[in-house]
Amino acid sequence: MIPYGRQDINQADIDAVMEVLKSDFLTQGPKVPAFEKAICDYTGSAHAVAVNSATSALHIACLALDVGPGDRVWTSPITFVASANCALYCGAYVDFVDVELASGNMCPKALSKKLALAAETGVLPKVIIPVHLAGHSCDMQTIGDLAKQYGIKVIEDAAHAIGGSYQGFKIGACQYSDITVFSFHPVKIITSAEGGVAATQNAQLACSMASYRSHGITKDPAILLRPDEGDWYYEQHQLGFNYRMTDLQAALGLSQLTRLNEFVSKRNKFAKDYKLALSGTDITLIKPMANSESAYHLMLVILPDIADRKTVFDEMREKGIQVHVHYFPVHLQPFYLNFGFKVGDFPQAEAFYQRLLTLPLYPTLTTSEFSYIVKNIRLQLYSLTAINQ
């Protein structure tokens, strides 16, 4: 089976992990802060807080921005459920902003309209979480300007997007947001096996997130209630969690980071090859904004109206090609239906989902595998066109 995504692990990655296994530190050691610094150096962020998953990073980002019971958080309905769940963990209410049909990203026009109505009714969100779907940046300047206008904080869900850029800045520089969250799950751009990072330019937010990831515990003499107790002493100042990244994960992430630009370059090359290979068909490729470079975590395409997606999906899987669909709209998940969401609430997101398909894309995809994928998707469309004529 040709997967839709796959990690690329080389000998240097293995050696980096083996070095930690032979060291004195397996959990909290020097590799975690080294990885955090490397993320800062790459993205241009001032601070980075490494955790055990991007879901954890989203959670502590919300907590650091004081999201709590009674607050509102808005995100995209076209995303993995963690983008919304993180607010519920804090006791907040979740709502969604419809997407652009062309990109699947949060629609600035829909956001502007929704914010204006919310301001009139006194139900503005505390935080907005735009999602860089497939590694394509949202229109962060417009979203950031709207957030600033209404006094709202912004968390960029960049789980798909490390290595991408917007307006000449690496995603993670937070020029229009308060915090940016990355994922290092195996199918993402780089991997630490599992893991995530929350990047920010704000030292106070970084300090708060670092506390939340480790049980709310501190050893900082500057804030200890009993600073003279002894070197063994620590204090819990708030309710936190065990969200820490291990040195094993950080070592793998550090090694992978050295090849990040190479990975992104290969992904963009395959995206261009898909565009050329599928030209002349009725397939529409989801493209990044003109003033950005995508990390191309996913190769999203929109099938034509004549195509029965389930038939295409099943036939491609039958041929050993693991096509996928990213994502079923969150507001229509059974759990979220319990909150009163329903079909028709976000029509563009629902329409976007209906014809969406994910084709395999990863750096180690071979030329023969690529040709096989393109040949079969074109055959599927040809067969469906013949049937419908």
Rank of each mutant, 00 (worst) to 15 (best):
Ile387Glu: 08
Ile2Thr: 12
Ser255Glu: 05
Ala34Arg: 10
Lys287His: 01
Glu120Thr: 09
Phe346Gly: 03
Ala38Arg: 08
Val187Pro: 08
Ala307Cys: 15
Gln348Met: 15
Lys375Ile: 00
Gly320Asp: 06
Asp66Pro: 00
Ile217Asp: 10
Asn202Lys: 03
Leu384Pro: 05
Tyr212Ser: 06
Asp139Ile: 02
Val374Gln: 04
Phe341Lys: 01
Val127Ile: 09
Glu293Asp: 13
Gln7Met: 15
Thr218Asn: 07
Val99Met: 04
Val127Met: 10
Thr284Asn: 02
Cys174Ser: 09
Gln236Thr: 09
Val123Met: 09
Ser292Phe: 04
Ala61Trp: 02
Ser383Asp: 08
Glu19Trp: 12
Asp178Glu: 12
Val343Thr: 08
Gln333Ser: 10
Ser53Asp: 05
Asn261Ala: 12
Ser112Leu: 06
Val325Gly: 07
Arg226Leu: 14
Gly70Leu: 05
Ser383Asn: 13
Lys319Met: 12
Asp98Cys: 10
Asp247Gly: 12
Arg317Ser: 11
Arg226Ile: 14
Tyr327Ile: 03
Gly240Ser: 07
Ser192Phe: 01
Leu298Ile: 00
Met316Phe: 10
Phe346Cys: 02
Lys310Phe: 10
Gly5Arg: 15
Asp345His: 09
Val67His: 07
Val374Thr: 12
Asp220Tyr: 07
Ala210Gln: 08
Pro288Gly: 07
Asn10Asp: 12
Asp24Asn: 15
Phe341His: 06
Gly164Thr: 12
Phe169Lys: 07
Leu359Gly: 04
Thr364Leu: 13
Lys272His: 07
Thr385Val: 14
Glu293Cys: 13
Lys22Cys: 09
Ile302Met: 14
Ile152Trp: 13
Ala61Pro: 05
Ala147Phe: 09
Asn388Leu: 13
Leu101Gln: 14
Ala118Asp: 14
Glu120Lys: 15
Ala118Gly: 08
Arg317His: 13
Leu379Glu: 11
Ile302Gly: 10
Ile321Leu: 13
Ile14Met: 14
Leu356Trp: 02
Gly68Ala: 08
Phe263Glu: 03
Trp74Ala: 07
Leu260His: 03
Ala210Cys: 01
Ala222Trp: 08
Ile14Val: 15
Ser165Leu: 14
Ala250Cys: 05
Thr27His: 05
Asp41Ser: 07
Ser183Asn: 12
Ala16Gln: 13
Met316Gln: 11
Arg259Asn: 11
Ala50Trp: 01
